[in-house]
């Protein structure tokens, strides 16, 4: 069986600490093809950034313990030497970070920071790298790129800075791009522009894109597949169409309910998910979402508290990690609000 373009298999990332092992990502598997977009959704600390950083090998400088396999272009990235990994970083796999101000070095001109990425992987002159940089700045929609190339990061607005980050990430035509909450720190209108830009560039270069976000609106707009993560584990995974139209587990329902929507009736209050995710240090034996789940009472024998559900096919063509019976896990906003509002 031939593997997908990117195939993450049983990926676990653990951080040993003096208090015990933090399981930031546990037994995560997914695949992604070229030109496709995978949206990874989840709260802060759900392991979405940690698992994606593992693809770039960014945990190699830390004390993290990474296991499993990340198959990419026929090789297991986790089995590569540090130098082999470094050669792929920024060239075949690139990453865009959440806060473009802190992700750019304050003391260096943006042009130098971008061309540095080009020079690290190509035997070209500085002049050629600079020309390529200006070309990329123009491509990501920065006006007067030949002038702005010599500016410093603090002279750019938030949206422009994120465009700089995108130019930096795409300068070597990577085949896989990881965007870690690229629009979280930006204004709503700028968010839309950046998303459009990412989609355009993805089409143009036929890049595989992993979009990490906690914004289901972003997912609905650009993702082909969706992976919902909770407490370091995948809890729901499938095509965006199936998953968003028929979400099959209470955590995803909660995420959807907590989206503000102007067309929603004012009588239906915005419902945040109560409580906090469990500590990744000593995870409970049962379902990680059990403590916050309003639906565990519909599951017999208190299985939610004692038994971790498998990531198993739901009837809607995607995978879910939930004990809830099929006939009960029909999502209905009205029903959900009425039911849980009574508690």
């Amino acid at each position: 069986m031939s593997r997908a373009f990117l195939s993450v298999e049983n990926l676990s990332v653990n951080f040993p600490t003096s208090d015990g092992i933090v399981r930031a990502t546990d037994d995560l598997s997914y695949t992604l093809e070229r030109g496709q977009t995978l949206g990874i959704v989840g709260e802060s600390g759900s392991g979405k950034s940690v698992s994606s950083s593992a693809i770039l090998g960014l945990h190699r400088n830390t004390n993290a313990h990474v296991s499993g396999a990340i198959w990419f272009g026929g090789t297991n990235l986790l089995a590569l030497s540090d130098d082999e990994m470094r050669e792929r970083r920024g060239k075949e796999v690139a990453m865009i970070f959440q806060d473009p101000l802190s992700a750019l070095h304050p003391y260096y001109r943006v042009g130098d920071q971008i061309s540095e990425a080009h020079l690290a992987h190509n035997r070209v002159s500085k002049r050629a790298a600079r020309a390529r940089t200006i070309e990329m700045l123009a491509r990501v929609g920065i006006p007067q790129p030949d002038r702005r190339v010599d500016d410093y990061p603090h002279q750019f607005s938030g949206g422009m800075r994120q465009r700089v980050m995108i130019a930096m990430a795409l300068i070597n035509d990577p085949v896989l791009l990881i965007a870690d909450e690229p629009t979280t720190a930006l204004d709503v209108t700028v968010q839309a522009q950046i998303l459009d830009l990412l989609q355009d560039l993805q089409k143009e270069f036929d890049t595989a894109l992993i979009m990490i976000t906690h914004d289901l609106g972003v997912i609905a707009e650009i993702a082909d597949d969706v992976l919902v993560m909770y407490a370091g584990r995948a809890v729901e995974y499938g095509s965006a169409r199936a998953l968003l139209s028929q979400p099959a587990m209470p955590y995803t329902w909660g995420l959807i309910q907590s989206i503000p929507d102007v067309s929603r009736s004012v009588d239906l209050p915005l419902r945040p998910i109560p409580g906090n995710p469990p500590s990744l240090l000593n995870q409970p034996a049962g379902c990680p979402f059990y403590a916050r789940c309003d639906y565990s009472k519909f599951v017999a024998d208190n299985r939610c508290a004692t038994e971790l559900p498998e990531l198993a096919p739901a009837s809607y063509g995607h995978l879910k990690r939930c004990h809830l019976k099929e006939e009960l896990s029909v999502y209905d906003t009205q029903l959900a609000v009425v039911e849980t509002g009574a508690n």
């Binding site: 470094r86 970083r89 690139a94 990453m95 690290a120 980050m165």
Partner: peptide, 15 residues
């Protein structure tokens, strides 16, 4: 521990 160090590593620069 700054973010821009992570960016520098993500670019594939040597340590």
């Amino acid at each position: 521990s700054e973010d821009y160090i992570r960016t520098a590593r993500a670019k594939g620069l040597t340590e």
